[in-house]
Amino acid sequence: MALTKKEVEKIAGLARLELSEEEKEKFADDLSSVLGYVQKLSEVDIKKVEPITGGTSLESVTRKDDETKCVSDSQMREQILSASPNREDDYFKVPSIFE
């Protein structure tokens, strides 16, 4: 299982990661070696096995959509907003996405 540099570029794009040329080569090797290792799973007969989909057997856990449970005071609201690197008033500001 050897990944090409081109495949690494594609994955990096999907993952929104900028890589240097050097890193692309290095990651092609690293990822190939890990993917080669996990190929081991093809040895296991999984024909009649259902996949596990999480860490517990709990199903459909819900709670009331009550933001005061998370944001308990106005100071916290302010702290959350001010963590933004590009805040304007009460908004997170992003570059325009329409031409």
Binding site: L41, S42, V44, I46, E50, P51
Partner: peptide, 11 residues
């Protein structure tokens, strides 16, 4: 990869 791994995880 992923579905196969989730199956082995059950085993």
């Amino acid at each position: 990869y992923y579905t196969r791994a989730q199956k082995v995880r059950r085993l």
